[in-house]
Every structure is written in C-alpha cells, then in structure tokens.
Design a protein around this nucleic acid. Sequence first.
DNA 1: GTGAAAGCGCTAACAT
DNA 2: ATGTTAGCGCTTTCAC
Lengths: 324, 324
Amino acid sequence: MAAVSRQTVSNAVNSPHLVRADTLERVRAVIAQVGYRPHRAARTLRTRRSHLLAVPLQPPTDTIGGSVLDQFLHSLTVHAQAQDNRVLLFAAEDDDREIALYDELLDDHDVDAFVLTGTHRNDRRTEWLAGRGAVFVTFGRPWGADAHHGWVDVDGAAGTFAATMDLIERGHRRLAFLGWPDGSGVGDDRRFGFDRACAQAGISITGWRLSVVNELAAGRAAGAQLLDADEPPTAIVCVSDTLALGVWTELTARRLQPGRDVAVVGFDDTPTAAVIGLSSVAQPLNEAAMACLRMLTDVLSDPADGPPDPVLLEPRLTSRASSG
Amino acid sequence: MAAVSRQTVSNAVNSPHLVRADTLERVRAVIAQVGYRPHRAARTLRTRRSHLLAVPLQPPTDTIGGSVLDQFLHSLTVHAQAQDNRVLLFAAEDDDREIALYDELLDDHDVDAFVLTGTHRNDRRTEWLAGRGAVFVTFGRPWGADAHHGWVDVDGAAGTFAATMDLIERGHRRLAFLGWPDGSGVGDDRRFGFDRACAQAGISITGWRLSVVNELAAGRAAGAQLLDADEPPTAIVCVSDTLALGVWTELTARRLQPGRDVAVVGFDDTPTAAVIGLSSVAQPLNEAAMACLRMLTDVLSDPADGPPDPVLLEPRLTSRASSG
DNA sequence: GTGAAAGCGCTAACAT
DNA sequence: ATGTTAGCGCTTTCAC
C-alpha cells in the first residue's frame, strides 16, 4: 500500500505536478505493482470526457477505391490509441439520420469529437455540428462554403499535376484527362492539376478531356473514344484507379500494352493498381489521420481558439509499368 | 412532469413489467417529450455493461481482398447499432499486444464482448479470452483445436464445389485448381471443395493442382505454367480473386479471352472482380455479421450455457463473363 | 406497484 | 502538498 488518499492517486495520474516527487514515485510504484487502471465509465461520468472519437462508417462501395478509407481508419485507430483515445464506429443511411446519431453520441456517450469523411457540397452535418458546438474535423475540404471548422485534405490538383508533369518529362505531348462530371469538388480539383501542368508546358488539350461516371465500363468506353480519335493521345491521366482500370482493359483488349503503347495513370493507389502495375497517385493517409488527431487535440485542449488552420497534404506519385 | 420517482423512470425503461400500465404510459410520454435518454457512463458504472463490442482492426493488406473485412465491419456496425450496441475499434501489432488490449478493454471499458476475425492455428487470443471468461465470437473457424467458443464461418469448400460444378455443367472436363500452400486452413478448405466436385464427376486432376502465395505475379506465373502444359486445362478455379486476377492477366497477355478461351473463377467477390467481369464466390458477409451478433446476444443473456452452436454459412457463386 | 436509500469509481472543489 | 467531502446519473436492494 502507498498509504495515501484516493485523491492523491487521482492527482498522481491526472495532475502529477500537484504531487511531491517522492510521493509521486511511491504512488506510481504501487500503481504499477497492482496494475491499477482507472475505470473509464466512472471517469467519464465525472469529467464528461469519454476519450472516444466517433467515426461514421461509409457504406462499402462496389468500386476498387474502398480501401482508401479503410487505411485511413486503421491509421486513425492506431494513433488515437497511442493517445489513450478510442474509435467508436457508427453508420447512418443519410445525413439526417447521421445528425440524429451525433446528438445521441454526444448526449449519451459524451463522445469527445467526430472525424467525418466524405464531405460534400452543402453538407448539413458540419453545419449542425458547428451549431451545436461539437468538436470535429473533416477529412475532406468543405467544398463550396467557407470553413468554420478544421479540416485535413489531400491536394488532388498537386497529385495530377505531378502525374502529368512526369508524363511530359517522359516525352509525351499528346495528353488526355479522363475525369468525372463537373461539380464533384474532388474531381474538379484533380482535373485542375492536369490543366495547370499542360498550360505550364504549353500543351494544348482541346478535345482530350472526357468526363464520365466512376465505373470501369465508362472508363473503358471513354478510353476507346480517345484511342479512336484522329490523333489519339499517347498518355491518359485518370481521376481514379477505377477509370484507369477501364482504360487499361480497353488497351489490353486492343492488344496494346499499357506503358509501352499508351501511358496510363490512375489516382488513389489502390491495391489493384499495385497488383497490376498501374501508376497511380497515392494519398498520404497516415499523415492525414495524424493531422486529424493533432487538430482535435489542439481544439480539445484550447476550445476558445477559433477553427484551426486547415492542413493540405501533398500526394505522392507511384510510378509503375503503366507509365512507360 | 410525470410526478414519479427517478426509480420508476428507471424501471419504465429497463423493466417495464414492474410498472403499472398507466404509469408506464405516462412516463413514456414524458420521456418522449423531453427527449430523455439515459447516460451511458452512469449506466455502465452501475451495471458493468457498456453495450460496447470491441473489434480488432487488421492492418490493411496490399491485396485486393481487403474489402471483405470492410463489408463485414460495416454490417456489424449497422446491426449492432440497431440493438443499442456500438462497435469500438482497436488495433494491435501481434497477438500478445492484442491480448494486453483485451485486458484493458475489459477492465477499463467494461466491453461486453469481442468479435475476432482472422483466426489462425494455435490462436492464443481465443485461449486467453476463454480462460478469462470473456464473451466473444470469431468470424472464422478455430482451425486445428476444438472449439471452446462460438464461431461463424463461411463454407469455403461448398463455394469451390459450386464453382467447380458450374464449370463441369458448362462442359469443362480439364479443370485446374490454383491454391495456396498447404496448412492455411482457409486454403485447404477451398481446395477440398474442388477435389470433391472433381471426384464426384469422375474427373482426374493429376498435375493440375498448383499452390502459390497470394500475389498477382505468382498467380500469373502459375497460370502460364498451366497453359504451357501438354494438355492445358480449359477452366481454372482459384482460391482467391488475387490469384484469379493473375491468371486473367496472363490470359490477356496471351491474347486469350477469359471465359471464351479459358474459364477462370476467383474467390471473395471483391469489387475488382465485379469490375472486370471475373466470376467469383461471394461470402455472405451480412449474414455472417448478423450471426455473430445473434450468438453474442444469446451468450450474454444466458452466460450459463456452454459455447453456442457454430454457424457455417453457404457462399454464393457469382457468374460473370469469365465463366464463359 | 412505487418510493427511498445506497453506492458503482472517479475527480472538482474546498479544507487543512 | 495532501486529505476530506460531495456528487456525476444511474440501478440494485429493500422498505412500504
């Protein structure tokens, strides 16, 4: 026994500076010896802090890009754990139901903060959370509206810029971009990087910018269309691995070899890309998760400050056989 | 106000049968009106039940099969939520560290139960949990040892049996199986279904059973080896979508069309398979998640009973272009 | 069937 | 710097 009051133990754990050094040491020794660990529910009840981070799980999509959030979530879990926080999952079918869950999570579980993914235009979720005064970060920019909250995102334009520049340096001059229809935020951003690289290199891109939905078949059809043009492109930058895989499929069907005959680059660096040798732009998901956590820690420790500065991370081009 | 004691409210919520009907109705009306919801930490502190399910997150792999656990986790979250339970994530680098976390989760968070995935031979985790008397289920059989716990799994052999039979019915007689090296449990099980189907149809498989690691390049090389045989197979059943994709790659490189020239079937029905038109065996992940939850509910409500009966679910063959 | 008392394990506030 | 008191919100137990 350390022969001290319960309170001194609490102080030793939570506010070591209040305890004299030798007492602290003695208490810590006993804590280690008996393996004492404070009970979370009791602590939460008293402090209104649960050390829980709530994360909404997106419904799994049937595209190959699903693994992106998977990696982010894993990283978030690992690093939250290292700070004595845990990740609590929830799932909602639409924004309204998700908001109802926020309310419940906040009231019942005393959840400390939220990490949202998949932000979109006119996202009512962020509005609601901000209005309620909840602590949260989004992985993804607040497209459209001004940010009244902290966010972390990956600079998609920088990614496609790097990919396009790489192709130009490899000698390509007839470049195409295969993107998503206008208005998707992420898609517009990525196209912008391509445009900027071409402009900088003085390359015209008339007629070589196609927009299709994010499905392999659509990518394949678009690839066919590009290849059938009078002066077909020698390199195709794609907004996603799914579309790149579509182009890939069309190339191999025509007995053309990706990389040797026509260069293809995707985006997201999914396992599929790695597996088939498709060059792709990789998001730094570990860094993104850590930036989210750092931001939350800052806000939680100093709630008075305004929204924290956003963090925009640079993606990294992974060159594989399909770059030529 | 309902003008009743705090206790009556508690009873109305937790033990409605103790409260007279009209009182119950009155209390419920007020609860709905003021939006009262009990505070979880307080309840947990009193009852030692957190309504939390802890799930270890596997590190993301670089194979296309990662989405399988993703879907399972989503389903688990959705259905747990419907029963007023939540999913708490954690991550560990190895079994020993994972066990240390169990201990912490049990003591500090009063976690009600665990759902483990990725069971393997001599899994110390299940031993430890059983020894500690914790409630848990595994998604995955207890390979090797006898089961002293509830488990849910998918009948891999039935999946490859169905896939093989389907090919036989389509007229194939020269069938090959591309599997993993012996001893992996899951892999052995899936190979067994192929063997059984061939035996049942009186088909010899000498020389057409290859085992390689789960990588695209390995699958491709194995595919090449099979195609170069004196009498090459007309159909190849693969233990995974990754290996099937390897075979696919080799086929298209040889200007052979999967399905028309040689049939290929994978396992796990990953998004990649759907996207490229690869036939594959799909695990019923929704059912698996629900079975896990049902099992846990049973054990939690009646801890006295022995381990519950295991559940073995039938997978479903999804035929696409690659079946011919 | 309903109410009152006690206490789960912890920490904020205050007293020493 | 340490100890004491009170109370977070709930439910188990017991009295009525």
